[in-house]
Design a protein around this nucleic acid. Structure first.
Length: 374
RNA sequence: GGGUAGGUGGUCGAGUGGUUAAUGGCACCAGACUGUAAAUCUGGCGACGAGAGUCUACGAUGGUUCGAAUCCAUCCCUGCCCA
């Protein structure tokens, strides 16, 4: 049986150890390292699939929990699967609902069997387990599906993190057993263990034994200081299998994306470009700007004079500020287009610099220009 | 001309004798946002001052009172109804 997801390593940056590769999926190849925009409810908010392609999105995310609640996975299956339902023919990755165990903390109860949620939509009781998550993800039909895990809050005690990590491993095993579309969908395991290295090691080893076609790092980038994030990232990435995709969940900002690539990560996702867009903020090569602010009222320059996106080619900061201030949908759309393109452009550069064995130097220059501390 | 309702901080609008520089909403100013309960949330928003604080404020003027945006008098203005 040919696995649904395979990884091809093209080059390792001699300067940093970063990986340049390809993830092969049933809906085409993904050049890595890659940034994946998030479309929780089967839509990257305000963007059409054509626009997503235009800004360089190779793969997008959707969410099991949200689509399970509404419109329901059966309906999407009936529609012919998620790709067809949302008119996106490139790869899709579905998250399992594990992040909602974290983000809906006040609305759920965890047991060995699974997680009971109070629906944030109508308060009704809902239940997600490894088996249920697989049923939903199989019905949605994404190329890459994530195991049902628990993303622990920061900080969490060693005892709790250990128990949670071990349970996540047991859940991963149950996911693997319940997953019944292995030829069409690759199931990734999620390494947990919070901010404790021995737990990370344990989690990675146990999951590797289960032989998933790809692995993710979960449970970081949850509010911790950057130093701790880097510490766990740089500890965990190298102990992940070399011949399979490595996915860092929930990242991120431009600096985190560069750090992830440096650490040998292949895939990242984050809501931040689209969320910042809706909140009136833009990434630029000289740092992020809150274009909603009064200082841009008469700024007739593009968001970023180095950007080649549709927004920057045609609109000024002053106009976008006007759209944001007047609550016009176009402001959100133009900022979303720009912010996603900014991150996909960044990853384009990262891939080139890896091939040139120059990612470390690129990072230094990027940080300097962006205004990040080295 | 007669009657009637009203004039509150950028705006709309509460408050109808004393913890009132004055509830709220909007506008405005700023901050946050990392596997999306998020086109959201948080803070600020009379003047001067770093701050403690000081001053000026509820149409105008005068009055009652220990004390008034709140009570009284006169005046000015606005909406509506009648002529």
């Amino acid at each position: 049986m040919k696995p649904a997801i395979t990884y091809e390593l093209l080059h390792v940056c001699k300067q940093t150890g970063a990986r340049r590769g390809i993830v092969h999926t049933p809906h085409g190849d993904i050049q890595t390292p890659v940034f994946m925009p998030v479309g929780t409810q089967a839509t990257v908010k305000s963007m059409t699939p054509e626009e997503l392609k235009e800004v360089g999105a190779q793969i997008i995310l959707a969410n099991t929990y949200h689509l399970f609640l509404r419109p329901g996975h059966e309906l999407i299956k009936e529609a012919g699967g998620l790709h067809k339902f949302m008119h996106w023919d490139r790869p899709i990755l579905t998250d399992s609902g594990g992040f909602q165990v974290f983000s809906l903390g006040a609305l759920r109860t965890i047991s060995e069997e699974g997680v009971e949620f109070r629906s944030h939509l109508d308060g009704s009781k809902q239940f997600l387990s490894p088996e249920k998550a697989m049923e939903v993800e199989n019905a949605l039909g994404a190329d890459i599906i994530m195991a049902f895990d628990e993303c622990c809050p920061y900080p969490s005690t060693y005892e709790y993190t250990k128990k949670s990590m071990e349970r996540t491993t047991r859940w991963a095993k149950r996911c693997k057993e319940a997953h019944n579309r292995k030829e069409e969908q690759g199931l990734f395991g999620i390494i947990q263990g919070g901010f404790y290295k021995d737990l990370r090691k344990q989690s990675a080893e146990d999951l590797i034994k289960l032989d998933f076609p790809g692995y993710a790092i979960g449970g970081i980038s949850v509010g911790e200081p950057k130093k701790e994030f880097l510490d766990i990232l740089n500890y965990t990435a190298p102990i992940m299998p070399e011949n399979k995709p490595r996915y860092l969940m929930g990242v991120g900002t431009p600096d985190y994306l560069v750090e992830a690539a440096m650490a040998g990560i292949d895939m990242c996702d984050c809501v931040i470009p689209t969320r910042l867009a809706r909140h009136g903020t833009a990434f630029t090569s000289k740092g992020k700007i809150v274009v909603r602010n009064a200082s841009y009222e008469r700024d007739f320059n593009p968001l970023d004079d180095e950007c080649d996106c549709y927004t920057c080619k045609n609109y000024t900061r002053a106009y976008i500020r006007h759209l944001v201030k007047t609550n016009e949908i176009l402001g959100i759309r133009l900022l979303s287009i720009h912010n996603i393109k900014f991150l996909t452009n960044l990853m384009d550069k990262v891939r080139i610099e890896i091939e040139r064995d120059n990612l470390g130097s690129f990072r230094k220059e990027f940080y300097r220009k962006y205004g990040y501390e080295q």
